[in-house]
Design a protein around this nucleic acid. Structure first.
Lengths: 192, 192
DNA sequence: GTTATTTCTTAATATAGGTTAAGGGTCTTT
DNA sequence: AAAGACCCTTAACCTATATTAAGAAATAAC
């Protein structure tokens, strides 16, 4: 649990009573490689904090093709927030790409903690703001850069993830096919 | 100012003292059509709440083409959050598309209000969470749908905006050229 | 209300990136 | 350590969308 407490304390101070309250409402889980912690058609019941391992969140289109929309590694939160808050069925999947460990909070417990640990709103505000900024950058890049530029930017920005991910998942995240990524990589290697 | 107070009260209760505090830290401004409230190279100093009118936020690529990444109408917040919080130069522009009225909070004043109106974090957490959910949907759609599907979805989801925006701005938001949007529209009209 | 500017449309040509298919490589699981 | 699953690359061909250009229509500014 310590990783999560440490994460909270980066943003707000917590006294012992608050710590106990938080610890009573969170659950630690081990997740196997390939295991799903969210599947299409189910409500996303947990906000998950990754303490070990790597996840991807993806959607599946009309033709059955998967599209990665987010990765989450150590220190990241992951959930389908739309489903989590609205309690509507999710259209997304979250899958472990490595053997992993997470700390989960259920929706009702998070809402309880928001009421009883006053400044907790602040932690989640800052977290989601940072993710929003990142995502907005990605949207702009998608429309204003070539696939090659986006690939290079991914390598630079997520060097640690890139080395843990098969190219096929990177291609999906960039919105291109693995074949085309392969072409890009060949191009880059002959350039330099 | 009432529109903003009403907005806050949707999420948290506010007593008279808090209201006075808030009112002392916000500024009302009239903005002319075509006027910029943020330009590339400047730090985004204000979080702006639109009470009247319509704005677009856009970036400019290497070749000088503009890409709309967000619109904001009555009841919406707009800012380059990345620049606002980091105090780094923005790469974005925010321009009024109609004669408008906004209520602005400066960064230092917002931070002051976060400290002194305890639950204000909550308002901005919920606001940004909703925008994040919307943006994530958009990313998924960009990668998993054709331009025609994205156009129809835009018309459905933002019917009120669509009628106030020239098609050229809608095309830019969808990540296509106005010429191609024109083709799509023709196609749709002959279909039905 | 007229003029100037911006927007919309059409059509011909061009291209980034997709599709299909196939072989070889590399992990994982047993 | 073998079998199977997954992953990467290449290459030929294909398609959605971009580009360019130019005229018509709509809107804004005076």
């Amino acid at each position: 649990m310590e990783a999560l407490i440490k994460h909270f304390k980066k943003y707000i101070p917590l006294d012992d009573e608050q710590l106990k309250l938080i610890e009573s409402r969170i659950v630690k889980r081990k997740i196997k490689r390939r295991q799903m912690i969210l599947q299409e058609g189910f409500v996303c019941k947990h906000y998950s904090f990754v303490t070990q391992g790597l996840f991807r969140m993806y959607g599946v289109d009309d033709k059955g093709f998967e599209h990665n929309i987010q990765f989450a590694a150590e220190g990241d939160w992951i959930a389908d927030l739309g489903s989590f808050h609205s309690k509507k069925q999710s259209k997304l999947f979250i899958e472990a790409l490595e053997p992993s460990e997470i700390i989960q909070i259920e929706q009702k417990d998070l809402y309880f903690l928001y009421l009883n640990v006053l400044k907790l709103d602040r932690v989640f505000k800052v977290t989601i703001e940072n993710k929003f900024i990142e995502l907005q950058d990605r949207v702009l890049q998608t429309f204003s850069s070539t696939a090659e530029q986006r690939y290079l930017s991914f390598l630079e920005h997520y060097a640690n993830l890139a080395s843990r991910l098969p190219n096929t998942h990177i291609a999906s995240y960039l919105g291109i096919t693995p074949e085309f990524l392969s072409k890009i990589r060949k191009n880059l290697s002959t350039k330099s």
